[in-house]
Amino acid sequence: MNQTPKVIIFDAFGTLVKIGESRHPYRRLMNWLKDNGRKPTTNDASIIMSNNLDFEELAVLFGKALPTELLKEINHDLQFELNTIMLFEDVIPTLQILKDLGFKIALCSNLAKPYGDKLKTILPKNLFDVLVLSYEVDAIKPEINIYETLRTKLDFQMCEALFIGDNPILDVEVPISLGMSARLIERNKMQNLSDVLSDLLLKQE
Protein backbone atom coordinates (compact mmCIF):
# COMPACT_ATOMS: atom_id res chain seq x y z
CA MET A 1 0.00 0.00 0.00
CA ASN A 2 1.46 3.34 -1.02
CA GLN A 3 0.19 5.44 1.89
CA THR A 4 -1.42 5.02 5.26
CA PRO A 5 -5.18 5.33 4.82
CA LYS A 6 -7.32 7.85 6.67
CA VAL A 7 -10.53 5.85 6.28
CA ILE A 8 -11.00 2.10 6.75
CA ILE A 9 -14.18 0.66 5.25
CA PHE A 10 -15.46 -2.76 6.24
CA ASP A 11 -17.92 -5.12 4.64
CA ALA A 12 -20.38 -6.66 7.13
CA PHE A 13 -21.25 -10.34 6.70
CA GLY A 14 -18.24 -12.61 6.44
CA THR A 15 -16.01 -9.76 7.59
CA LEU A 16 -17.33 -8.33 10.86
CA VAL A 17 -20.39 -10.50 11.52
CA LYS A 18 -21.53 -14.04 10.88
CA ILE A 19 -24.81 -15.94 10.76
CA GLY A 20 -24.78 -18.82 13.19
CA GLU A 21 -27.45 -20.84 11.36
CA SER A 22 -28.82 -19.92 7.95
CA ARG A 23 -32.44 -20.53 7.03
CA HIS A 24 -32.23 -18.67 3.67
CA PRO A 25 -35.65 -16.99 3.85
CA TYR A 26 -35.08 -14.85 0.77
CA ARG A 27 -34.04 -17.88 -1.24
CA ARG A 28 -37.25 -19.57 -0.13
CA LEU A 29 -39.25 -16.55 -1.31
CA MET A 30 -37.56 -16.53 -4.71
CA ASN A 31 -37.97 -20.30 -5.13
CA TRP A 32 -41.70 -19.99 -4.40
CA LEU A 33 -42.01 -17.17 -6.93
CA LYS A 34 -40.22 -19.31 -9.52
CA ASP A 35 -42.44 -22.32 -8.78
CA ASN A 36 -45.47 -20.08 -9.25
CA GLY A 37 -44.58 -18.79 -12.67
CA ARG A 38 -42.22 -15.87 -12.16
CA LYS A 39 -39.03 -16.18 -14.18
CA PRO A 40 -35.91 -15.22 -12.18
CA THR A 41 -33.78 -12.32 -13.47
CA THR A 42 -30.18 -11.33 -12.88
CA ASN A 43 -31.44 -8.20 -11.16
CA ASP A 44 -33.37 -9.97 -8.38
CA ALA A 45 -30.70 -9.69 -5.69
CA SER A 46 -30.23 -6.02 -6.45
CA ILE A 47 -33.97 -5.42 -6.09
CA ILE A 48 -34.07 -7.20 -2.72
CA MET A 49 -31.08 -5.38 -1.29
CA SER A 50 -31.77 -1.90 -2.64
CA ASN A 51 -35.42 -1.61 -1.61
CA ASN A 52 -36.73 -1.06 1.90
CA LEU A 53 -39.49 -3.71 1.62
CA ASP A 54 -40.74 -6.66 3.65
CA PHE A 55 -41.47 -10.11 2.16
CA GLU A 56 -45.10 -9.33 1.38
CA GLU A 57 -44.17 -6.08 -0.37
CA LEU A 58 -41.35 -7.76 -2.29
CA ALA A 59 -43.69 -10.48 -3.55
CA VAL A 60 -46.11 -7.82 -4.79
CA LEU A 61 -43.23 -5.98 -6.46
CA PHE A 62 -42.37 -9.26 -8.20
CA GLY A 63 -45.99 -9.65 -9.27
CA LYS A 64 -47.30 -12.22 -6.78
CA ALA A 65 -49.26 -12.37 -3.52
CA LEU A 66 -47.77 -14.65 -0.87
CA PRO A 67 -50.06 -17.14 0.87
CA THR A 68 -50.55 -16.20 4.52
CA GLU A 69 -49.07 -19.41 5.89
CA LEU A 70 -45.98 -19.20 3.69
CA LEU A 71 -45.47 -15.58 4.70
CA LYS A 72 -45.62 -16.62 8.35
CA GLU A 73 -43.09 -19.43 7.79
CA ILE A 74 -40.65 -17.21 5.91
CA ASN A 75 -40.84 -14.51 8.57
CA HIS A 76 -40.22 -17.16 11.22
CA ASP A 77 -37.15 -18.40 9.35
CA LEU A 78 -35.91 -14.83 9.04
CA GLN A 79 -36.32 -14.11 12.74
CA PHE A 80 -34.57 -17.37 13.65
CA GLU A 81 -31.66 -16.48 11.39
CA LEU A 82 -31.42 -12.91 12.69
CA ASN A 83 -31.21 -14.22 16.25
CA THR A 84 -28.07 -16.20 15.36
CA ILE A 85 -26.15 -13.22 13.94
CA MET A 86 -23.10 -12.30 15.99
CA LEU A 87 -19.89 -10.32 15.78
CA PHE A 88 -16.62 -12.14 15.23
CA GLU A 89 -14.72 -12.04 18.53
CA ASP A 90 -11.88 -9.87 17.22
CA VAL A 91 -14.11 -7.07 15.90
CA ILE A 92 -14.59 -4.79 18.88
CA PRO A 93 -10.99 -4.86 20.17
CA THR A 94 -9.57 -4.33 16.68
CA LEU A 95 -11.93 -1.49 15.80
CA GLN A 96 -11.20 0.15 19.15
CA ILE A 97 -7.47 0.16 18.39
CA LEU A 98 -8.09 1.62 14.92
CA LYS A 99 -10.35 4.29 16.38
CA ASP A 100 -7.80 5.16 19.05
CA LEU A 101 -5.18 5.51 16.30
CA GLY A 102 -7.34 8.14 14.63
CA PHE A 103 -8.75 6.24 11.66
CA LYS A 104 -12.25 6.99 10.39
CA ILE A 105 -14.22 3.74 10.29
CA ALA A 106 -17.10 2.96 7.94
CA LEU A 107 -19.32 0.02 7.06
CA CYS A 108 -20.47 -0.68 3.52
CA SER A 109 -22.73 -3.66 2.95
CA ASN A 110 -25.17 -5.23 0.51
CA LEU A 111 -28.06 -6.55 2.55
CA ALA A 112 -31.80 -6.56 2.99
CA LYS A 113 -33.39 -4.30 5.59
CA PRO A 114 -33.96 -6.89 8.37
CA TYR A 115 -30.25 -7.69 8.40
CA GLY A 116 -29.39 -3.99 8.53
CA ASP A 117 -31.75 -3.47 11.45
CA LYS A 118 -30.08 -6.35 13.29
CA LEU A 119 -26.61 -5.01 12.52
CA LYS A 120 -27.49 -1.68 14.06
CA THR A 121 -28.31 -3.41 17.35
CA ILE A 122 -25.01 -5.30 17.63
CA LEU A 123 -22.43 -3.01 16.03
CA PRO A 124 -20.67 -0.70 18.50
CA LYS A 125 -22.04 2.69 17.42
CA ASN A 126 -19.18 4.62 19.00
CA LEU A 127 -16.66 2.90 16.72
CA PHE A 128 -18.28 3.75 13.38
CA ASP A 129 -18.34 7.14 11.69
CA VAL A 130 -20.84 6.06 9.05
CA LEU A 131 -22.89 3.05 7.93
CA VAL A 132 -23.74 2.76 4.24
CA LEU A 133 -26.32 0.03 3.76
CA SER A 134 -27.55 -0.84 0.28
CA TYR A 135 -31.28 -0.68 1.01
CA GLU A 136 -30.89 2.79 2.56
CA VAL A 137 -29.01 4.33 -0.38
CA ASP A 138 -30.76 2.50 -3.24
CA ALA A 139 -27.49 1.10 -4.58
CA ILE A 140 -25.47 -2.09 -4.13
CA LYS A 141 -21.85 -3.06 -4.60
CA PRO A 142 -20.41 -3.10 -7.28
CA GLU A 143 -22.47 -0.07 -8.38
CA ILE A 144 -20.31 3.04 -8.22
CA ASN A 145 -22.96 5.04 -6.37
CA ILE A 146 -22.58 3.10 -3.13
CA TYR A 147 -18.83 3.75 -3.00
CA GLU A 148 -19.39 7.39 -3.93
CA THR A 149 -21.91 7.68 -1.10
CA LEU A 150 -19.18 6.62 1.29
CA ARG A 151 -16.76 9.16 -0.12
CA THR A 152 -19.30 11.96 0.13
CA LYS A 153 -20.38 11.13 3.68
CA LEU A 154 -16.83 11.02 5.04
CA ASP A 155 -15.29 13.58 2.65
CA PHE A 156 -12.20 11.67 1.60
CA GLN A 157 -10.28 11.05 -1.58
CA MET A 158 -10.45 7.49 -2.88
CA CYS A 159 -6.68 7.10 -2.43
CA GLU A 160 -7.14 7.78 1.30
CA ALA A 161 -9.42 4.76 1.85
CA LEU A 162 -8.78 1.10 2.57
CA PHE A 163 -11.58 -1.42 1.93
CA ILE A 164 -11.67 -4.71 3.87
CA GLY A 165 -14.05 -7.51 2.92
CA ASP A 166 -14.51 -11.16 2.04
CA ASN A 167 -15.63 -10.74 -1.58
CA PRO A 168 -12.69 -10.52 -4.02
CA ILE A 169 -14.69 -8.53 -6.55
CA LEU A 170 -17.01 -6.27 -4.54
CA ASP A 171 -14.59 -5.58 -1.69
CA VAL A 172 -11.24 -5.72 -3.49
CA GLU A 173 -11.27 -5.43 -7.28
CA VAL A 174 -13.89 -2.69 -7.55
CA PRO A 175 -12.51 -0.51 -4.72
CA ILE A 176 -9.02 -0.79 -6.26
CA SER A 177 -10.42 0.19 -9.67
CA LEU A 178 -11.83 3.32 -8.02
CA GLY A 179 -8.48 4.28 -6.54
CA MET A 180 -8.80 2.81 -3.05
CA SER A 181 -6.56 0.25 -1.43
CA ALA A 182 -8.25 -3.05 -0.56
CA ARG A 183 -7.54 -6.29 1.25
CA LEU A 184 -9.33 -9.61 1.30
CA ILE A 185 -10.16 -11.32 4.58
CA GLU A 186 -10.77 -15.07 4.46
CA ARG A 187 -12.57 -16.04 7.65
CA ASN A 188 -13.07 -19.57 6.29
CA LYS A 189 -9.27 -19.92 6.45
CA MET A 190 -9.26 -18.70 10.06
CA GLN A 191 -7.98 -15.24 9.20
CA ASN A 192 -8.86 -12.45 11.57
CA LEU A 193 -8.71 -8.68 11.28
CA SER A 194 -5.26 -8.45 12.81
CA ASP A 195 -3.92 -10.69 10.04
CA VAL A 196 -4.98 -8.27 7.32
CA LEU A 197 -4.36 -5.05 9.28
CA SER A 198 -1.16 -5.96 11.10
CA ASP A 199 0.88 -3.11 9.64
CA LEU A 200 -1.67 -0.53 10.78
CA LEU A 201 -2.27 -2.07 14.21
CA LEU A 202 1.47 -2.06 14.92
CA LYS A 203 1.32 1.72 14.92
CA GLN A 204 -0.19 1.55 18.39
CA GLU A 205 3.15 0.53 19.87
Results as ranks from 00 to 15, higher is better:
174 V>R: 14
135 Y>H: 11
139 A>R: 14
84 T>R: 02
157 Q>H: 11
172 V>R: 13
69 E>H: 06
18 K>F: 03
112 A>N: 08
195 D>Y: 06
59 A>H: 06
104 K>Y: 04
176 I>Q: 15
184 L>K: 10
53 L>S: 06
177 S>I: 10
66 L>R: 01
200 L>S: 08
159 C>S: 12
110 N>S: 08
61 L>A: 03
161 A>G: 13
105 I>R: 01
62 F>W: 03
88 F>C: 00
154 L>N: 09
131 L>P: 08
138 D>I: 09
128 F>E: 09
17 V>M: 10
115 Y>K: 09
132 V>A: 12
164 I>C: 13
178 L>G: 10
44 D>A: 03
88 F>V: 01
128 F>H: 10
33 L>T: 01
90 D>G: 04
63 G>P: 04
24 H>C: 04
86 M>D: 08
100 D>W: 00
168 P>E: 15
21 E>N: 08
51 N>V: 02
53 L>C: 05
160 E>H: 07
119 L>R: 14
1 M>E: 05
64 K>I: 05
67 P>K: 01
152 T>L: 14
200 L>T: 07
72 K>V: 07
184 L>F: 09
38 R>Y: 03
125 K>Q: 13
162 L>A: 11
196 V>P: 05
15 T>C: 05
104 K>M: 04
125 K>F: 10
51 N>F: 05
10 F>S: 00
10 F>C: 01
88 F>N: 01
